[in-house]
């Protein structure tokens, strides 16, 4: 256990190692550590920001969905209302048309009946004249008696 120059050599080696470590090892490792720390912090930050954004977007989407549902319901209601209106109108139209047609048909029938009555009257008068001619054996002046028959026919 002699104290000798080894001591000095060891001290020199020690000084060199410490210097080397201080110069070339510590700074880059520390820098890498700090940079990674920052990177991770940034990443966590970004993640929380993204989560917040997602929440906002979800809320927005919900809102939009709700609004559009409401709008759709409104439109549907309006359409139904319109359809009802149209249906009502059509029904009314149809009723009026029907009534009109019925009235027309009634008047036509009346006309027809009147005409038939007229015809019948004419024919009856002719038949009566014919009958009278037959009875009187053509001794009667047709023209003279036509007025009488007409009068008769009108009374029918």
């Amino acid at each position: 256990m002699n104290l000798n120059l080894t001591l000095v050599g060891q001290a020199i080696a020690f000084a060199f190692f410490v210097w080397f470590c201080m110069k070339f090892i510590w700074p880059p490792v520390m820098q890498a550590l700090q940079e990674r720390q920052k990177k991770i912090a940034d990443g966590l930050d970004a993640a929380s920001r993204a989560a917040r954004d997602l929440e906002v977007a979800e809320k927005e989407a919900d809102e939009t969905l709700r609004k559009s549902k409401q709008e759709a319901a409104e439109i549907l209601e309006q359409a139904q209302k319109q359809a009802n209106q149209k249906l009502e109108q059509a029904r009314e139209d149809a009723r009026l048309e029907g009534e009109r047609m019925i009235a027309k048909a009634k008047s036509e029938i009346e006309q027809e009946v009147a005409r038939a009555k007229e015809d019948l009257r004419a024919q009856v008068s002719r038949l009566a004249v014919l009958g009278a001619e037959r009875i009187l054996e053509s001794s009667i002046d047709e023209k003279q008696h036509a007025a009488i028959v007409d009068k008769l026919a009108k009374e029918l």
Partner: peptide, 15 residues
């Protein structure tokens, strides 16, 4: 083992 040599440890300690 260098640290069983008192020169080594004393060298560091004196530094």
């Amino acid at each position: 083992v260098p640290t069983t040599d008192v020169n080594a440890t004393l060298g560091m300690a004196l530094s």
